[in-house]
């Protein structure tokens, strides 16, 4: 409804757009050129070379393995969340039990407790379970730390199912299991897609837990690999940036195909 254009806001918005896009552009360009070209032209230049050598080299020094490990961790974390969270969200929305209400309150507190504060005992726990330096040892706590937020998002989506629908199911004599499988799950597909994408993203991008809970290159993940490359090859900027690009590609694909779920998952945090 604004009638006259707001030039100042427009200029500021475009300036911020440049701050966001310029580094991304410089990164993409540099990742396709040799170190010689990069050094000759400097960080700010137009593309002159298009070579995939940097990417090939990243794979040669084992980055493919790191990407694969991150992918396995993402899948494993999603599997655990899919088993645990939908029943919990269903209970929170429909149960009359006091216990469930207490669980919900605890989860809300957990929402603001970042994984960082418990890494030391987690190290002790995972090591005691004999899971130190394994992918499973990273998956288990990673899943635990997305439970609060994914539960909150999914309860929001389940609350939109109307009471009459539930009553109709009950009139049909459906118990809780049938109500859950035939009514709640199908109707909360959107919410489930959101928590899947959110969980996968979190696991893929996780840094501190894999940093502390793994040691060998066989179980190293992409983010930790990046930080190690940065220490070893800080001179080879095109090589480094090509590895960064490799870590973004899978998320970008998800973004293209499940943009709505991704955006919903991200805004679900502070939407209300």
């Amino acid at each position: 409804m604004r009638t006259r254009p707001n030039w100042i806001a427009g200029a500021a918005a475009l300036l911020w757009l440049a701050v966001v896009l310029l580094p991304v552009f410089l990164m993409l360009r540099a990742s396709f050129e040799s170190q010689g070209t990069y050094l000759a032209n400097g960080p700010i230049a137009l593309p002159t070379e298009f070579s995939l050598d940097n990417f090939a080299r990243s794979f040669e020094i084992g980055f493919g393995r790191y990407l694969l490990n991150a992918g396995i961790i993402a899948l494993g974390t999603v599997a655990i969340v899919l088993i645990l969270v939908p029943p919990l969200a269903f209970a929170i929305v429909r149960s009359r039990s006091r216990t469930v209400r207490a669980v919900f309150r605890v989860l809300l507190i957990g929402l603001a407790v970042p994984a960082q504060v418990v890494v030391i005992p987690l190290y002790f726990l995972i090591d005691s379970l004999g899971l130190f330096d394994t992918l499973l040892g990273v998956i288990l706590p990673t899943a635990a730390f997305v439970v609060p937020l994914t539960t909150l998002v999914l309860t929001g989506s389940m609350r939109e199912i109307s009471g009459e629908t539930y009553e109709a199911m009950a009139l049909d004599g459906a118990g809780s299991v049938r109500t859950f499988l035939n009514l709640v799950l199908p109707l909360s597909r959107g919410g489930i897609a959101t928590i899947v994408v959110y969980t996968a993203l979190n696991a893929w991008n996780g840094f501190l837990l894999p940093l502390i809970l793994t040691r060998s290159p066989e179980v190293m993940v992409a983010t930790v690999g990046l930080s190690q490359f940065r220490q070893q090859f800080s001179v080879d900027i095109p090589g480094l940036l090509s590895a960064v690009v490799l870590t973004i590609i899978p998320i970008f694909v998800v973004y293209l195909f499940a943009r709505r779920a991704l955006v919903a998952g991200l805004t679900g945090v502070g939407g209300k």
Partner: peptide, 30 residues
């Protein structure tokens, strides 16, 4: 009708126990 199809606390238990084991217990242990 009011109670039919409503889940009991059991539905919340697996996730709650999991969260306690990997998030709350470590908190106390810290």
């Amino acid at each position: 009708q009011h109670e039919a199809g409503r889940p009991g606390a059991v539905w919340a238990l697996p996730a709650a126990l999991y969260f306690v084991l990997f998030a709350l217990l470590p908190l106390g242990f810290a």
